[in-house]
Amino acid sequence: MSAQVLRRRRVVRPRTAAVVLSGAVVTAVLGVLALGLGDYPLSPSQVVSVLAGLSDGFERIVVIEWRLPRALAAVVFGAALAVAGGVFQTLTRNPLASPDIVGLANGSFTGMLVALLVLGGGWPLLMSGSLVGGLAAAVVIYVLAYRGGIKGFRFIVVGIGVSAMLSSFNTWMLLRADVETALFASAWGAGTLNTVTAETAYPAAGAALALLAVLPFAAPALRQMDLGDDMARATGVRVDRARAAAIAVAVALVSTVTAVAGPIAFVALAAPQIARRLARAPGIPLAASGTVGAGLLLASDLIAQHVIPLTVPVGAVTVVFGGAYLVWLLVHEARRRP
């Protein structure tokens, strides 16, 4: 019986599909806008004709070489973070379990700071520092939270603890650096696309897309694990293996993004929740999370670049809007359910 029920659950819900689609459309519109805006403004029709290969010369350079890497990075990174957050939240069955809260971001920042301030390295060193830091934090949290199994609540609290340690260590490292270095590091630490170039954006986006392509193979197992470990085991899911694989993919996604753009906060936390509420789905819809996350990060980057008069890191924008939206949702939910 349960097999039948589960099979029926796998049918794509129309509302979820609509959310995926409208997320993609909004992202595409924002993308055209992002490629057109700047010191040399282009109309949407000009952008589209460049993308269609119908226009050459300076416009092409502006769109393809100047603006595309950043816009593409925003889209892919947003999707990657959101999907990773969705995986974490599904596995722990807790909306708080986001890589931001769970310590990955702080670990990456610690790795980057050590690379920058102690080893004094350039971009390759910073990126590998951030990668190593994030992965090490994830492993430490997993090991500390493991006690004959992983329980959502324990995982989150251990994450909060390790995060707090790392973030205060980061604060202290910044305190010891000179102002210029500390400002640079802080902008990165807030999560920024200002420093993204074609050389860093394309490899990272490629890696993230490859990881995203792996995930559909794990998704059915994830959906059953959303029902609880015992239920999943009863329906034939190898729980520990599926979980380890999914966590590995999610951690790799977050680390890839963080290595290039720094820990961009709140996309991973807010996007899956927004997608779930928009889709009115019982679990977290991963594909919808992806398109919502892409739109969210791209919109935030547009705001960071063009709406705010000073250059702020996109992470400061995502935190404010993602967080504000989450709060609004909480208020709204409370009103609907008196």
Binding site: A190, V319, G323
Partner: peptide, 16 residues
């Protein structure tokens, strides 16, 4: 959530 919002605002404010 709200703590993160205000931390983000503080970051934006101080970095500029």
């Amino acid at each position: 959530a709200l703590g993160a919002v205000f931390a983000g605002l503080t970051t934006g404010l101080t970095l500029t």
